[in-house]
Each structure stands twice: as structure tokens, then as C-alpha cells.
């Protein structure tokens, strides 16, 4: 579904992704690991077309992100949730959820509200549908952001460290929701440092270091064997106390 072909991305003199190639199919949960500044978030942002790539190409459903005309289709198919929750502060939860499906998917207000109620039930926040973002905790806002992304029926969810700005209690609220979604078969591409989530939910692990792909393996092998075989990965996992 997503083909990342030999991409390079730099910010000024800093090359964040170097000749990076990887493919993602429309199934399972892929967790992207690696130290800070290795290009994990940049990779997701490039897939979503939020960053222009310097060279190479990314195809989503065969459509290139380099062609601006494809961005709408790509973004509708790859919902993205950010590290810092970005609800629209001038809208309540229900309007945050329904404005995009009404405008972009041409759903009627009633259909959009029914769909919103379905996903709000899924994330356990149906009682907050009339709330504004400042009446919600960080964890609740993040769960709404996930539900809002799901409203567009994406083929994959791109999750960029969605729990890193939350305290442990709120993190576990969000991770529980993500586990439920994974059990429902939602395809996810998640940058995270939550190893327990990776072990429990992921089917595949990518490990990035200095803008390059160090390993791409099934989760069991990664935690059982690769961590002992690769010194860099071993050092990283030890450092984060895994």
C-alpha cells in the first residue's frame, strides 16, 4: 500500500533520511523505533505529504506524494495523529469530528454524526461530544484526535508519538484504545517509545538510526534475537530500560 522508494530528506545541512526504502502493506501494526532525531517522525510526515522529499518517491496506492494533485487521496487514505494533540479550538468535539467528512466525503450531517457517535463510543468518549478541547484532558484529546482520523475511513493510521506528551495514566488510556483498534484490524504505522505496546500489538518493527533503516523484522524476532545480535539496538533498548 505504501512504497517508500529511496527517499532523502534534509533540513538545511542536516540529512534526516538517507536513501531510505521500505514498504508497508495494508495490514497489521508496524512500530517504528529509534533514538530521537533519526527521522522517524519525518518519515511519517513525508508519507502524509507534510514534508517535501528531496529525492526518491513515496507511492500510496500507486500515487506519488511528489504530485500535489495526489495529496488529497493520499491523506484521506493515511490518517495522521500528531504528538501534540491538535483539535480545532473553535469547534466542539462533535464538530471537530464531522466537519471533514461533511466537506470532503460529502456525508450528510446526520450520517457524519452517526459515524462520529460510533467512533466516540469506540474511544469511550461519547459523553464528551459537546465539550470543547479545553474541557478535555490530554489523553481524552488524543483519543478524540484518533477518532477524528478514523472518521475519514483511512486505510492506515500514521501515529506520531501519540503518547509522548501524556502522563502514564493518560498514555495507558490512549494505548488501550490503540490496542482495541489493532484488534479490530485497523492498520497502523506507529512511531513510539512504548515497548509494551510494541510487544503486545505490533506485528513488525522497523529500527531507524541516523536516517537509515537498521532492521525491519517481525516483532518476536526483534525482541528475542535481533536485540542480542545488533549492538546499536541492544544499546537503545537497554537505554530505555527495556
Amino acid at each position: 500500500m505504501i512504497e517508500v522508494k529511496n527517499i532523502t530528506k534534509s533540513f538545511g545541512d542536516l540529512t534526516v533520511l538517507k536513501n531510505f526504502t521500505v514498504n508497508f502493506k495494508e495490514e497489521g501494526v508496524t512500530v517504528i523505533l529509534g533514538p530521537s532525531g533519526t527521522g522517524k517522525s519525518t518519515l511519517l510526515r513525508c508519507i502524509n505529504g507534510l514534508e517535501n522529499i528531496d529525492s526518491g518517491d513515496i507511492l500510496v496506492d500507486g500515487l506519488s506524494v511528489n504530485d500535489k494533485k495526489n495529496l488529497r487521496h493520499i491523506r484521506l487514505n493515511c490518517g495522521m495523529v500528531f504528538q501534540q494533540t491538535v483539535l480545532f479550538p473553535h469547534l466542539d468535539v462533535m464538530h471537530n469530528m464531522t466537519v471533514s467528512p461533511i466537506k470532503l466525503l460529502k456525508l450528510s450531517k446526520k450520517e457524519a454524526e452517526e459515524r462520529a457517535e460510533f467512533y466516540l463510543n469506540k474511544v469511550g468518549l461519547i459523553s464528551k461530544k459537546k465539550s470543547r478541547h479545553n474541557e478535555l484532558s490530554g489523553g481524552e484529546q488524543q483519543r478524540i484526535a484518533i477518532a477524528r482520523a478514523l472518521m475519514m475511513n483511512p486505510k492506515a493510521l500514521l501515529l506520531d508519538e501519540v503518547t509522548s506528551a501524556l502522563d502514564p495514566e493518560m498514555s495507558s488510556e490512549v494505548l488501550n484504545i490503540l490496542e482495541k483498534l489493532a484488534a479490530d484490524g485497523v492498520c497502523m504505522l506507529a512511531v513510539t517509545h512504548e515497548m509494551s505496546f510494541a510487544k503486545k500489538v505490533a506485528s513488525r518493527i522497523l529500527f531507524l538510526d541516523k536516517g537509515s533503516l537498521v532492521c525491519d523484522e517481525p516483532v518476536e524476532r526483534f525482541f528475542r534475537e535481533t536485540r542480542n545480535e545488533n549492538e546499536r539496538i541492544s544499546r537503545f533498548l537497554n537505554f530505555i530500560g527495556e
Binding site: L50, L104, A149
Partner: peptide
């Protein structure tokens, strides 16, 4: 970016 990411 949140708007772009939703497809707008």
C-alpha cells in the same frame, strides 16, 4: 497541518 492531514 491538522487540516492538511485530514485531507483538506
Amino acid at each position: 497541518e491538522a487540516g492538511y492531514a485530514l485531507g483538506h
